[in-house]
Amino acid sequence: MSLFKIASVAAIALTLGACQSLFQPNYRAPLETTRDATETLKPGCTTPDCPLVNIDTLRFPAEPQLDGIVEKRLLQMTRTSPEAPAAPTLAAYRDEFLRTAGPRNSSYLQAKVREQHDGLVIVEFSSYLDTGGAHGTPGRGFINYSRQQHKVLTLSDMLVPGQEEAFWKAAQVAHNSWLISTKLDQEPEFVKQWPFQKTQNVALTYGGVILKYEVSTIAPYALGHVELKIPYPRLNGILKPELFPGRN
């Protein structure tokens, strides 16, 4: 083959590669979001202690199916018991809550992007329900949305098959590190009363895998939502290789 033909083939290959890249999503660039925030008082109420619903959520114009996923997760956080049904929409929840709410009752729901990297969108959810008790009920949650797969990753999606037990052992090491850093390991009664537990709130952040706990699970209410962090090097052979930051 002549040098001219070789050069021509190489030029065509480079052109095709460039054209291909034009039609592939740029996962390094974060998804654009728009904020959708409202605060609604009970209709007809004019007193300072009017019940209210505050909803602060997100829209993803380039990934509209994520809008529905976010709304569904927020609605799950409004349930007052595992058996309670969730409202069909946030608007329906707001209207029903305000219809039955008493003075000073309030409900806050928020979805925010914690971070984006490697084609992952980590959305963090917060809720706070105040129905007049000694203190309100706060809630937290995560989703790890894969833009490549167009789905929310479950823990089994994240882990190498057969490595779930190893993952939770790594989480226990992170829990021990947290006890030491807070000096709570020096309080035998605390360690006995608040043992390590698993959580559904797992986030694949760039700096490490984060586990977030609901209040009063591994620590008293006053300590809030405890976060544990597992460094990625501890998850070699446990977490799927493509989910390590920078490898995908």
Rank of each mutant, 00 (worst) to 15 (best):
M1P: 15
S2L: 03
S2Y: 06
F4D: 09
K5S: 13
A7H: 02
S8F: 06
I12G: 12
A13K: 02
G17F: 07
G17S: 13
Q24L: 07
R28I: 08
A29W: 00
P30N: 04
T34L: 11
T34Y: 00
D36I: 15
A37N: 11
A37K: 15
K42G: 00
T47L: 14
P48I: 15
C50Y: 01
L52R: 01
V53W: 05
V53N: 01
I55S: 01
L58E: 11
R59P: 05
R59S: 12
F60D: 03
P61H: 13
A62E: 11
P64N: 14
Q65G: 11
Q65W: 01
L66E: 05
G68W: 04
I69S: 12
E71A: 13
R73A: 10
L75T: 12
M77D: 00
T78H: 11
R79I: 03
S81A: 15
P82L: 00
E83V: 07
Y93N: 10
D95S: 14
D95K: 13
E96A: 12
F97K: 06
L98C: 06
R99I: 15
G102D: 06
G102T: 00
N105D: 14
S106T: 12
V113Y: 03
L120Y: 05
E124G: 12
F125K: 02
S127L: 00
S127I: 01
S127K: 00
S127G: 14
G132M: 05
H135Y: 13
G136N: 08
P138G: 05
G141A: 14
F142S: 05
N144Q: 10
N144G: 10
Q148S: 14
Q149W: 13
H150P: 13
L155K: 07
D157S: 12
D157R: 11
M158G: 00
L159R: 04
Q163Y: 04
E164A: 02
L179I: 10
I180S: 04
L184K: 13
L184T: 05
E189F: 15
W194M: 00
P195G: 02
P195M: 00
Q197R: 09
T199K: 04
N201V: 11
V202R: 03
V202L: 04
L204M: 07
G208Y: 01
V209W: 02
V209N: 02
K212G: 14
V215Q: 13
G224P: 01
H225M: 09
Y232V: 10
Y232M: 08
G237I: 11
L243A: 03
